[in-house]
């Protein structure tokens, strides 16, 4: 295993120290139980947004802590959901009197652990709501599975609800906006290579030299199908078609297109994929009103790409454009 680490079991906390040192103006880090808190939290009177999940998806979620986005992120071990004590501590730390919204990616572990934390916080008398994001169209038979996974849509959800909370919206409004995003966002990803979890030491799946995994999750977990590697046009079409069919997105829709690197894919290839997606959407009469291109929800060093499409309303557009100041997303300030 080739990694720039000290020891597999201290990776997350060692990395958080560097995050804290790099962005002292934006955030502070509590080592135990691990939390990344907005530097000026709790913000009195503001709805607090708390998210979290396994580490290894950086910049998600710690890179999105700051004004206009998250109040706290709870990083679990690599690819492992955080524990309830982390989430409970974070909720307590950032609660500013206007309630707390938990944004949870739909994985059994995340849902169960956040659920437990929410119970603990509710017992403290804090108004805690939970919105679960499940945008991965690769998962087809949601009734025969744990349901769709939360993937790329999470980034857009955190930005948009973050803007709502920053603007002073109350908990009901934040929850409504969050559910609107979840209702209108769809994603799918693929990978050329598998990630290696530090404490595992070898790749999570074995992908042959001419194979790719389509519909992969963000933990290197297998997806819809393992297929022969095709060119970029085929890859992008193979991701976009299922997304478009699912909502469905139709001619005349305004969308935000998010082309995400899974971590190891160079920007050279990512922009190439993005260009193809733009062309395909234009050909369908779907108007791309905003775009985000980069490695924002990753799977360690996994090479691959995911596409996310969010149908935009004027309200969502306004929240998207609102200022944000975090380690990984910043504009307007």
């Amino acid at each position: 295993m080739k990694k720039i680490i000290n020891r597999p079991d201290t990776v997350v906390v060692d990395s958080l120290r560097g995050l804290a040192a790099a962005h002292a103006d934006l955030l502070r880090v509590i080592a135990d139980p691990a939390q990344v808190l907005r530097a000026d939290a709790p913000v009195r009177g503001k709805v607090a947004l708390v998210s979290g999940g396994g580490s290894g998806h950086e910049p998600l979620h710690g890179g999105f802590v700051g004004p206009g986005m998250l109040d706290a992120a709870c990083p679990g071990a690599v690819f492992t959901s955080p524990t309830p004590d982390q989430v409970h501590a974070a909720v307590t730390a950032v609660h500013g009197g206007a309630g707390v919204l938990l944004l949870v990616k739909n994985y059994t572990g995340d849902v169960l652990n956040f659920e437990t934390a929410a119970e603990l916080a509710a017992a403290d008398g804090i108004d805690v709501r939970t919105v679960v994001i499940d945008d991965d169209v690769a998962v087809r038979d949601s009734t025969f599975t744990a349901g769709r996974r939360g993937v790329g849509g999470t980034v857009l959800l955190e930005k948009i609800v973050g803007a709502a909370a920053e603007s002073g919206a109350d908990l009901d409004t934040c929850e409504r906006v969050a559910r609107a995003v979840v209702a209108e966002v769809r994603s799918m990803g693929m990978a050329l290579t598998a990630p290696t979890v530090p404490h595992v030491g070898s790749p999570s799946v074995e992908l042959g030299a001419d194979e790719m995994e389509v519909g992969i999750g963000i933990h290197g977990e297998p997806g819809r199908a393992r297929t022969p590697l095709v060119g970029a046009e085929g890859i992008v079409t193979g991701l976009l078609d299922p997304i478009l069919e699912d909502l469905p997105f139709a001619e005349g829709d305004d969308v935000l297109l998010f082309t995400n690197s899974m971590g190891g894919t160079p920007l050279l290839e990512l922009y190439l994929a993005h260009g193809i997606a733009e062309d395909l959407l234009a050909a369908r009469g779907i108007e791309v009103r905003r775009r985000l291109v980069g490695p924002y929800i990753t799977s360690l060093e996994m090479q691959g790409v995911s596409l996310t499409l969010l149908r935009m309303t004027d309200e969502l557009l306004e929240y998207w454009d609102a200022p944000v100041r975090t380690a990984a997303l910043r504009w307007g300030c």
Partner: peptide, 12 residues
């Protein structure tokens, strides 16, 4: 186990 394991199996 609830506070240290994480994942699905921790709370279960």
């Amino acid at each position: 186990l609830i506070s240290k394991v994480g994942g699905a199996s921790g709370p279960l």
